[in-house]
């Protein structure tokens, strides 16, 4: 069954596609193992070399969307130092979406690499006569 036109706003079940970088990094962080909120924030920062720094309000908003879309699920809960920790894991649906997004980006990278190599073989245009 196709999504009706009036609902088709470049979303799939509440998740914008192609997914934005923070969402992609959250899914990537969860691909290896279930993580709790703090673990997710540090892992996303590590994956992006510190470029993407999620804050809890933003993270839990994104997790809610991913939970609603069935891309992520709650693995388990535990209490550490009298604080609740929930561990999230990627669902099969989430894994499929991450794989599709990775494939899409891989094709883009390949296309860009081919073009850049062609450009390098042709040689970069240079100024003739030098700078006066």
């Amino acid at each position: 069954m196709h999504l009706p036109l009036y609902l088709r706003i470049r979303y799939i079940d509440g998740v914008e596609t192609p997914v934005r970088e923070p969402t992609f990094l959250i899914l990537t962080a969860l691909a290896a193992e279930p993580l709790h909120g703090y673990g997710l924030i540090t892992e996303v920062a590590r994956l992006s070399d510190g470029r993407v720094s999620l804050r809890p309000g933003t993270l839990y908003g994104a997790l809610d969307r991913l939970l609603d879309a069935g891309l992520v699920t709650i693995e388990r809960e535990e209490v550490v130092d009298s604080r609740l920790r929930r561990y999230y894991r990627l669902t099969e649906h989430g894994g499929d979406l991450l794989a599709n997004e990775t494939e899409r980006m891989r094709r883009n990278v390949e296309a860009a690499t081919v073009r850049l190599n062609t450009r390098a073989r042709r040689g970069t245009p240079r100024l003739s006569g030098g700078i006066a």
Partner: peptide, 13 residues
């Protein structure tokens, strides 16, 4: 449902 979890994450950071 989520308050203590969110606060716990802020405190951990």
């Amino acid at each position: 449902a989520r308050g203590t979890e969110i606060v716990g994450t802020y405190l951990a950071l």
